[in-house]
Computed example of a mutant assay.
Amino acid sequence: MQLTLPVGTEPEADPAGGEPRVPFLVALGERVRTLRSRRGMTRKAVALAADVSERHLANLEYGAGNASILVLLQVARALQCSLAELLGDVSTSSPEWLLIRELLQGRDEGELRRARLKLTELFGSTGVDATGRQSRIALIGLRGAGKSTLGRRLAEALGYPFIELSREIEQFAGCSISEIHNLYGATAYRRYERRALEEAIQIYPEVVIATPGGLVSDSTNFNLLLQHCTTVWLKADPVDHMRRVAAQGDLRPMAASAEAMEDLKRILAGRSAFYSKADLTVDTSAQPLEDTFVRLRDGVYALLHRES
């Protein structure tokens, strides 16, 4: 059986004529050596502190040891660094990154948000017109939250065009969302999502956008959205999400409703922290549709007035 490894992890020939080495493991070994040198520790001292054999550590540093996560955690503790730093997370790739991490570590959500907004103000984004944020209204939330129904009504009330980003993604790809995932995978889907969002931002200074529920899962695309749009989280109870999806004609979740409901709750729990970054939250389960629309419209009017 042939083993297929992810890109960047294919074995490469060992110049000494030994077993092929995997680039990721070679880079990991180099980071271990660098961190050990930076700490002024001998290999023996690190091995002792990590409770691993010196030979095991030598293999790891050489890129020949495929250590377990627990061993890597022990080595990281011995080197007084995070596991992320040992594995080569980008935010540990230079002294400046490490100093920035140190400044932000331990800050609460409010402080981190202020820092993010300051960085956005300082650097902005490249290749996209940054004007008109307050007049681009992006609705976020899970499927079944009411983004399409309420979005169309909000656009009409504001006199703005309304677009569903999912339809724009399909136009870019020339196929349906499900076909994008099946044929090209999640990475390609996120690229199409970003292209569709960038184009919407460039074309429409005033617009209401219904976004895909999973957009917040991609930090690059979500940052772009937060930077260039006023965001509104349409929040709903999981039961309402499920009921509305079924009302749209998709009965697949009902085939295994108990399991589907648990999955939905987990997804909502995992994304809520990101959805809550929105400028405005409207609970679409708390009152009838008409009352929900009035709350949404009045809330958006208040945001537009505040930022104008």
Rank of each mutant, 00 (worst) to 15 (best):
D51Q: 14
P23H: 09
A76F: 04
D89Y: 15
G65W: 15
R21S: 10
R21M: 15
G40Q: 06
T42H: 00
L35G: 00
A47W: 05
Q80P: 06
E61L: 05
A27P: 00
A49M: 02
A76T: 12
K44C: 05
A45R: 15
V22W: 06
R31G: 10
V26W: 10
D14E: 09
A58G: 10
R39T: 03
A27W: 03
L73A: 09
L87Y: 06
P11L: 08
E54F: 09
R31Q: 05
S37L: 06
Q74R: 15
R21K: 14
D14F: 08
A49S: 06
L72M: 15
V32K: 12
T42G: 15
E61R: 01
E19P: 01
I69M: 12
S68V: 11
R38T: 01
D89Q: 10
G63Y: 03
V75Q: 11
L83Y: 15
E19F: 08
S53C: 07
A27D: 08
R39S: 04
D51V: 02
L72G: 08
L86M: 08
V90S: 14
T34V: 03
L60G: 01
R77E: 07
L87S: 03
R38L: 04
A49H: 02
G17M: 13
A13M: 06
A49D: 01
L48S: 03
L35F: 06
R31P: 09
L48K: 08
T42A: 03
L70T: 12
R33M: 07
A84W: 13
E85L: 13
L73R: 14
Y62D: 13
D51N: 14
L25K: 09
A13H: 13
G17S: 04
P20M: 05
P23V: 13
P11F: 07
I69D: 13
P11R: 07
L60W: 13
A76Y: 03
A64C: 02
I69L: 15
C81A: 14
L70E: 14
L28M: 12
V71N: 10
E85V: 11
L73I: 06
R39N: 04
R43H: 01
S68C: 02
R38H: 06
C81Q: 10
L25Y: 15
P11S: 07
L87H: 07
V71D: 05
F24T: 08
T34K: 08
D14K: 11
A50M: 10
D14Y: 12
V26F: 10
A27L: 03
A67V: 14
E54K: 13
L87N: 01
A58P: 01
N59S: 10
R31Y: 04
Y62F: 09
A84Y: 05
S37Q: 11
A16K: 13
C81V: 15
V26L: 10
E54H: 13
D89P: 01
L25H: 14
P11G: 01
E85A: 14
F24G: 00
V52M: 12
R55L: 06
A64R: 10
A67T: 12
R31H: 11
A64N: 02
E61H: 02
R33S: 09
R33C: 01
M41S: 06
V71Y: 09
L70N: 09
G29W: 03
E85P: 03
Y62Q: 14
